[in-house]
């Protein structure tokens, strides 16, 4: 087989994609490599991907002992779960009303949702911070999650999904004797799982990885989320111990990577469902 026969459009595409994947994966791979290296090796002049001495367990030990890693992980899980739960409880009835009920303010609400999509958290961060400070609620789970309770993105996503649900189904539910609340809980929610899953992905990924907001409202390690914990670690404890820092990063990123690997198909379905990429 000659070398020329390998150059088919398909192979070219694959090569290009692999190259792209490598570029995106490189920092993560380097992180894994550093997490397994000893301190001396990290600062040696030679660059190697594969560590000479395995120091992974030692680094992980340092990561767990120098910062309350379990506390950080728990904070992350709790805040993400709280945010996601309240977002869904608010967004689903709201989106249902906008998609399927006829009322005069529907158009105005739609405009407000679109406007809401345009305003980033950074624009409203300062007033919200001031309010939380005045009420003495900084350094709390509430401060970490409350600004995200109403997700216009969630409303928008559910709205698109509910619009595609047949009107006949809702008419049938009304004739069967359901109130609007019963329609939402008994007909809409059980059939909205694909949309809920898709939204869960966006919401959990965004808030697990968020550093901006926790940095503003949290100053104690007790309430720190994982990314903020990493920052504290770097600033206070580790200094130049990059091996331990990378090991901590590995622990923090692992839940999302594991979730992705376990539910890869759902992730991709969810993203194609919303028509959003990247």
């Amino acid at each position: 087989m000659s070398l020329l026969s390998l150059i088919s459009p398909r192979n070219l595409r694959l090569a290009l994609l692999s190259l792209g994947a490598l570029v995106f994966l490189a920092p993560y791979i380097w992180m894994l490599s550093t997490a397994a290296k000893s301190r001396e090796e990290i600062f040696s002049s030679s660059l190697s991907l594969w560590p000479h001495h395995w120091a992974l367990w030692e680094n992980l030990g340092k990561a767990f002992s120098r910062v309350p890693m379990l506390q950080l992980l728990f904070n992350g899980v709790f805040v993400c779960a709280l945010i996601f739960f309240v977002q869904v409880v608010i967004a689903i009835p709201c989106a249902y009303a906008m998609a399927k009920l006829k009322f005069r303010a529907a158009q105005t609400m739609m405009t407000l949702v679109m406007l809401g999509l345009l305003v980033p958290i950074h624009a409203t961060a300062l007033p919200i911070y001031v309010a939380l400070n005045k009420t003495g609620m900084l350094n709390s789970y509430f401060a970490l999650s409350a600004p995200f309770f109403i997700s216009v993105f969630g409303i928008f996503l559910f709205l698109q999904f509910f619009r595609a649900m047949p009107d006949d189904l809702i008419s049938a539910a009304r004739l069967d004797g359901m109130s609007e609340a019963a329609i939402v809980s008994r007909v809409i929610v059980p059939n909205a799982w694909p949309a809920v899953t898709a939204f869960a992905i966006f919401s959990v990924v965004a808030h697990w990885n968020d550093l901006f907001w926790p940095l503003i409202v949290v100053t104690s390690t007790e309430r720190a989320t994982p990314p903020l914990g990493l920052l504290f670690f770097r600033a206070a404890e580790a200094g130049d111990d990059y091996g331990a820092l990378m090991a901590a990063t590995l622990v923090v990123t692992l839940p999302l990577v594991a979730a992705f690997l376990a539910a890869q198909r759902r992730f991709i379905e969810g993203i194609t469902l919303t028509g959003l990429k990247g």
């Binding site: 047949p166 006949d168 189904l169 008419s171 049938a172 539910a173 004739l175 007909v187 059980p190 059939n191």
Partner: peptide
């Protein structure tokens, strides 16, 4: 009682 063209059964 109404029967719809699309049947409108609850899928779940």
């Amino acid at each position: 009682a109404m029967v719809f063209q699309s049947y409108a059964l609850y899928p779940h």
